[in-house]
Design a protein around this nucleic acid. Sequence first.
RNA 1: AGCCCCGUGGUGUAAUUGGCAACACGUCUGACUCUGGAUCAGAAGAGUCCUGGUUCGAGCCCAGGCGGGGCUACCA
Length: 774
Amino acid sequence: MDFIRSMVLRDLETGKYDGRVVTRFPPEPNGFLHIGHAKSLCLNFGIASEHPGGRCHLRLDDTNPDTEKAEFVEAMKRDIRWLGFDWGPHLYHASDYFEQLYRYALVLIDKGLAYVDSSTEDEIRERRGSVTRPGVDSPWRNRAPGENRDLFRRMRAGEFADGSHVLRAKIDMAHRNMVMRDPILYRIRHASHYRHGDDWPIYPMYDFAHCMSDSLERVTHSLCTLEFENNREIYDWLLEHVDAPQPRPEQTEFAPLVLDYVITSKSKLRPLVEGGHVRGWDDPRMPTLAGLRRRGVTPAAIRAMCDMVGVARAQSRVDMAKLEFAIRDDLNDKAPRAFCVLDPLKVVLTNYPEEGTETFTAPRFPGGAGDGGVRELPFGRVVFMDRSDFEETPPPGFRRLTPGGEVRLKYAYVIRCNEVVKDGEGKVTELRCTVDPSTRGGVAPRGRRVRGAVQWVEPKSAVRAEIRLYDRLFSVAEPPLEDLLGTLNRGSEQIVTGALLEQGVAGTRPGDHYQFERIGYFFADPEDCGEGAPVFNRTVTLRDSWKARKRGAATGADGVRGEPVRPRGPASAQQRPPEEALRTDGERLWFTELVELGASEAASINLARAPELRAVFLAARTEYPDGADSIAAWLVNEITRLLGSGAAYDIGRLAPEALADLVEAVDEEEMSHRQGRTVLEALLREGGEFEGMRQRLDLEEIGDEEALLAILRGMMETYPEKAAAYRGGQTGLLGFFVGGVMKRTKGKADPRKASELAARLLSDPEGVATAQKR
RNA sequence: AGCCCCGUGGUGUAAUUGGCAACACGUCUGACUCUGGAUCAGAAGAGUCCUGGUUCGAGCCCAGGCGGGGCUACCA
């Protein structure tokens, strides 16, 4: 389960959204959906479908009239349906909210939280500052709400030219988050919107439109990719300040899908289309859903891949092999087998009758997959096999046909090559072979082992077809966005016109899947595949360990993968003293003082920065001066942890005297560290003094050796192999046994003793037993 | 440089309250007399970026460091 699904579950348990689960998929209709969107689609629609009453909205985020088109909307809807998702009645458009958005903007203006800025674009940019330099206020920043209202109303009325004014949120021009430096909410754009024509001369910006749209639709979980991380702050700010209804949607970011050898930037994909480097948005080499579909990739395969990839916050690159696996896995029992000879080489069977013919049958799906049907393969004196299945000088390990060697024509005969005929240039034009009649129809010839089996085609019945072999569009795993064209894979499309296929594919209809045996999965092109003139796109090759081995031998290394993508930098040995991390003089002063008072350096760093903890430390130390180091350690290690856990712990309730007493009790071994921790938790929750709390709590600890040993023996009997592994050197297993004891005693066992006993018992069961007897 | 996010086998993700580092892809081996590719069986491969701290016990808690990414559009 990924972190987002866990979060949704948690929200369901706590009733945060009254049991509602509403997600949304909000593409901007300015291009085609691609494989990266598929991940988001699977996530959003997936989560919605996993909960009763859950739903996922399709919302076109159409707030920029310059780039958006109705045709993109239609393409998106088609692609989403194709992928297998259904938004039901929940189709929305951000542009339909323009009126409400406008009113929300007015709310901000009236609250003095938004203003009309009449600066130029350059001025605004200049005044924004930089990541290291604070911005400066616009001279228009302090216009009165009335004036802002009037100006904004006139912006809407169309009185002003593009770029003359913008509406901005009034937040903080020195904000550490650049997004919060008075972000622009509205701009003037006299452009025709594909849905609303010239109704609006002003358009809301993403930050404003997005959160408001989510809120208007009562979305619960607004999921987006990592690059919007910094925008979360403005998302929350805006909803809060327009008094959006509770509970408000919350944005959560996840890592986008990044595939090796693939780019998923719409702005980078467009030049490929427009520059004629591919045949269109649906070119089979494109990562668009339309392209993948045309290539023959199935929706199920894409969904399966997204499933494999998972959802997390860590940036990652996914190996193409995962997609390829998903495709093969899905097509394996969907695509009937057929013979295809890409590069035909004539084979004359010299001992076969001149006019002889016969027909063999072969399964449509071998190995029990599929429908169990058969296909018929005519056979004759002349057949064609693939040129690559014959080698005059075979490399070691070659299992196909060689001069004087044998190979099995699959489902027909084993043949032996007796003669190689060449043309004037030395090119092999014909193989003269003999069939072994005893091997007819694939009947096992006893005592004979023929390793190679190849596909073949009988010419008179064969079907000609155009075959398009596709490979990755880019030659490097991580195409550089500045020089995409330079890394285009020149051989990404290879068109084969002279291929011969078995007769059965004559009836192929556009959109049919096949597996051409030993070659790969192919898809009858939905556009170009015509009656009697089939055109097939290679969806994906089959796994090929032979090719992989040859490639490895040829390059001496990994020929495909290229450079490691993410070199892990060795941590440089430069370790500076930790106090250099302290930022202010005040903190540094405290640091030295705390160290002098007896706190360790590591703890002092913490205390120097945290006034509340420090105050407790100082007070507790006066109660128990010798324990300064321990007190500091408890404060930093245990208290910080508890406070950070989000539970109902409050440092304010902890009396320094109580802490001092507690630490002293542990130091004096009046109680274990573990018991101390239990008391501390209670003190942080309820306050009070130490001794009283200690009396009240059930701090009983099982220290009785007999009892602990009994539990340990029980565990050793239950997990004899673990005990053996421990003795074999896997000492890490000690934690397994101690942990087991802790669990069985509900945390009551004295861990130190349990650990000690476990170590003794595990390494020498007999010794402990005899010691026990005595 | 500032702020934010993220570091777990080659790749992608898991790991309940701190208690056996798991799954998938990939790789390799073997079996299967008919795909060198299907299928089945098996194996190798990380001790969790580094250094320290807390703890009986740390992938998980604390500190520091290193590395990667995002943010300075009137795009989304």
